[in-house]
């Protein structure tokens, strides 16, 4: 299936998580913190730490380590706190 990551088309397979796709591509960080603007990516890997937040189809604050990709997903990195569009 095809998804886009920050606008760029990426090949993915059903059953992959967003984090699985990103790390598989060698992307380590996809979010910046609200305060110091520090980069963050995956940390706990099982949905408890909320470090891996990403924007999926206009909805921010989605845990990349838990969210399964779906055909056509528009995945975007998240800068600090964002509002849904």
């Amino acid at each position: 299936m095809r998804i886009t990551v920050d606008g760029e088309e990426v090949e993915a397979r059903p059953g992959q998580t967003v984090a699985g796709v990103l790390l598989g591509k060698g992307v380590k960080a996809w979010r910046t913190t609200r305060g110091a603007g520090r980069p963050r990516g995956l940390f706990c890997g099982i949905g408890v730490c909320f470090d891996c937040l990403v924007r999926v189809n206009g909805v921010p604050d989605v845990r990349a380590c838990q969210r399964l990709v779906a055909e056509g997903d528009d995945i975007r990195s998240q800068a600090g706190a964002e509002l849904p569009s």
């Binding site: 380590k28 980069p39 990516g41 099982i46």
Partner: peptide
Amino acid sequence: LPGVFTAGA
């Protein structure tokens, strides 16, 4: 820093 993970991760 990104690149530090839990063992479980």
